[in-house]
């Protein structure tokens, strides 16, 4: 009886000290998950998710305030990666993969004001004052910042047309 009580008490004390010790030694300053999630995000801080930048969205995701499908430019790939990382529920068919979009300049309306260039997160717009601007297709993420900024509505988002090379067989309808 006494032996059992003593040994269990001893064990509990030792383990308690061990845990307390470990807490001091391996102290985690910030939630590492937030950094890991932020590393997955595009990092363009385009703001389409409604959170303050990609790191803001990462915090929201980890705290459960955002769904896995929070990032429109990331598409299905990012959504499923986030869902896997955070064990979130994800219905891929609901992810707003509205297809890749790209900004384009209506050359007859552009006045060459350079405002769009300043807000483009990826430096995808080429141009100089009083010159018609142009979008570098490969660099544009379709975030739409320039569309909001353009004073003459010369900037629009256009879907990238689907090509034979990028077409995907639809999933068979369920029986």
């Amino acid at each position: 009886m006494i032996a059992a009580i003593l040994s269990l008490t001893l064990l509990g004390t030792l383990l308690g000290f061990g845990l307390g010790f470990a807490d001091r030694i391996f102290k985690v300053e910030s939630n590492p998950l937030i950094d890991e999630v932020a590393a997955l995000m595009p990092g363009s801080n385009c703001g389409q998710c409604g959170f303050p930048g990609c790191s803001g969205a990462a915090v929201a995701l980890v705290e459960g305030r955002a769904a896995a499908a929070v990032c429109p430019p990331g598409g299905k790939a990012l959504a499923s990666a986030l869902a896997a990382k955070l064990s979130l529920e994800l219905d891929l068919s609901k992810v707003a993969d509205r297809g890749p979009q790209i900004a384009s300049v209506a050359e007859d309306i552009c006045i060459g004001c350079c405002r769009c260039i300043k807000v483009c997160p990826t430096d995808a717009i080429l141009g100089a004052a009083k010159q018609i601007h142009n979008v570098i297709r490969e660099a544009c993420t379709g975030c739409g910042n320039c569309v909001e900024r353009c004073p003459t509505e010369a900037m629009t988002l256009q879907p990238i047309p689907l090509t034979v090379q990028h077409w995907v067989w639809p999933k068979p309808a369920l029986a």
Partner: peptide, 19 residues
């Protein structure tokens, strides 16, 4: 498509860093 998207994501990240 996911592979292309994630490559694109990486490229975007590099562009953002460059900017």
């Amino acid at each position: 498509a996911q592979e292309r998207a994630s490559l694109r994501n990486d490229a975007t990240k590099r562009l953002v860093e460059a900017r």
